[in-house]
Nucleic acid binder design. Structure first.
Lengths: 345, 345
DNA sequence: AGGCTGAATGCAACCGATTACAAAAACCTA
DNA sequence: TAGGTTTTTGTAATCGGTTGCATTCAGCCT
């Protein structure tokens, strides 16, 4: 009948000490005399004792876990952020739990915000009910956020980044510029649109042609079709899309219909997901430091769990990455050079 | 001083019953009389009582969590499997914890296999030490697996799928076929290679030109460079790569160097990640039912946690997806038709 | 009326660690 | 050597629910 998991009293008995001493060896070895410690360690080895986390957590009134609330786990954009968080949290002895808002109702999600389920919460989804997050565990918002909520945010300057992207297009000589938005109401969508408009207005250019989207590949494809459907002389010569995924869909659609990027249209993405540097043409885009976002969010949360006052917002830098999908517009419509493709021999 | 979280005795006191009764209302309402139940529920509402999971888990000797061991979270291939698992597990009231073997040593990973940390384990990484997984929690292996371990596997028939892929290339008329492998030693790499060899041998064709890889985008790029470095007449006219990511890298490299797919080389991938249908050319590939893999693995694990005998291996079907990256080889080297590109006008 | 059955509830022992407090031991100092 | 520290260890309460067993009581049968 010795197939029970050994508990702390079994170790104590074998070592001839009290459970308190064993516990001290485990969590605060310095207060135990060297000799006792050795014999306890030996007893632990002999019994094959392993600590029961549920019991420790109960006593400590904590859970040892942090929940990440993700909208749509299958989106590769998020997985890299999660990887950053996982690294930090694992180092601090916390478990990373993930909850996909795609597959759970808002009700079920809020259950995660309870102190008995997790010690903290990182929200990556801006479309949650702002209610119910009050008076619960520490919360950090990353990337997207919920306007009503009072919590530190780890983010980038979306508006400025969009401005930089569009200024690049303007600098290349584009005058008719399109913008494909993220989902309506989303804070990121709004900020990127605003940046686009600002950049154009600052140069005295007309506002962008705005097409709807939702960050997904397929919405980018649809936007591509919409662009193609325009009369050629009304088409923006450059399009800035609010996500790389949409940019891929857009380019795919345009290419499948026989046009070329950047010859017929310059395309600019947002995110710099790994794949887009390998496409043809390689995508010009705005790099978000995804891993760092995850890291910082986790660090910030750990600090709050540790009792520190929440920091203010953390704004991480973005980077303009120029590749082959953006080029000067083929002007001089008089010549109508249909052969002038991208320099590829 | 009423800012304490209410506990079960507070509810009991308010409702005028014992804690046992409150507990029954919570977990086994049928044995409580309707009247008592109502008054307890009312007390719960008034106090704002919330169950403490750590306490319940301690008593139940379970954790309510399942760990997924992933090699490299940032890989989008895995995130969709995780999404499937998350859906099933959330439905059954389990938390999904993720551990990225990239960021943790094998030691730390095995700590997750302890009953006090998780009720079960889904391993997606075939490169783990087979030891230490014995005499622990229930385990299910998905996709990749560890040869030494006795546990149900959720997988596809990699060899047959590779055979189908290569037969397609042969059917198109290709005779010199290349294969870019996954990481050496990996069960998937070996099976896909074996399938490739079988298909060729069955038709009496010479064995494939095998190039090394590791499933990553960049290793695909390197393979592309290696292919380009071959004398043109030795180059395989079709290449089958063991992952879509590698196929993307390969195509990118080939295109950046001025050649075209499938005109100069047909390319076949494996996985059917979402993006590849939007590339130009759209990638022909083998579709893995990633979400289903995640689901089935989770279901299987839940059954084992519930005490059922482990099922045998579960083999899910794959599908040959034909798109634009594969085409008949441009034979008749006498004509050397350099202009015959893909039909694109 | 006495005895029996079964439903509803309470008592108190758990689950397995942690830790405040007290007791004991060891070490100093005058 | 008595008295005062400091270090080490043990005792027992505690974290917050759950559940086997005992008890109570209403309803039913003979």
């Amino acid at each position: 009948m010795q197939h029970q998991r050994p508990k702390i009293v079994d170790v104590a008995r074998l070592a001839g000490v009290s459970t308190a001493t064993v516990s001290r060896v485990l969590s605060n070895p310095d207060v135990v005399s060297a000799e006792t410690r050795r014999s306890v360690e030996e007893a632990i080895r002999q019994t094959g004792y392993r600590l029961n986390h549920a019991a420790r957590n109960l006593r400590h009134r904590r859970t040892g876990g942090v929940v990440a609330l993700v909208p749509n786990l299958s989106n590769p954009f998020f997985s890299q952020i999660l990887a950053g968080m996982a690294a930090v949290l694992a180092g601090a002895g916390y478990n990373l739990l993930i909850a996909d808002s795609c597959v759970m109702g808002g009700e079920a999600l809020l259950a995660y915000a309870e102190p008995s389920r997790a010690d903290g919460l990182i929200v990556l989804d801006g479309s949650l009910p702002a209610e119910g997050l009050r008076r619960r565990v520490p919360v950090v918002l990353a990337c997207e956020w919920i306007p009503g909520i009072e919590a530190p945010r780890v983010k980038i300057d979306n508006r400025a980044a969009a401005r930089v992207a569009v200024e690049h297009l303007i600098g290349l000589g584009h005058r008719r510029i399109g913008h494909v938005m993220g989902p309506p109401g989303n804070v990121l969508s709004e900020a990127r649109l605003a940046g686009t408009e600002q950049a154009l207005a600052a140069r005295g250019l007309p506002p962008p042609l705005v097409l709807p989207g939702d960050f997904s590949l397929d919405s980018g494809r649809v936007a591509g079709a919409a662009w193609l459907a325009l009369p050629a002389e009304q088409r923006p010569t450059a399009v800035f899309l609010a996500s790389d995924a949409m940019a891929c869909g857009f380019i795919g659609e345009v290419q499948h219909r026989g046009l070329a990027v950047p010859r017929d249209v310059s395309v600019m993405g947002f995110d710099d997901i790994e794949l887009v540097s390998h496409m043809t043409p390689a995508l010009s885009t705005i790099r978000q430091p995804r891993e760092a976002i995850g890291r910082r969010a986790a660090e910030c949360l750990l600090a709050m769990i540790g009792g520190e006052a929440p920091e203010g917002d953390i704004v991480l830098p973005t980077e303009l990455v120029l590749r082959a999908s953006t080029a000067p517009p083929v002007t001089t419509p008089a010549i109508k050079s249909h052969e002038a493709g991208p320099a590829r021999l």
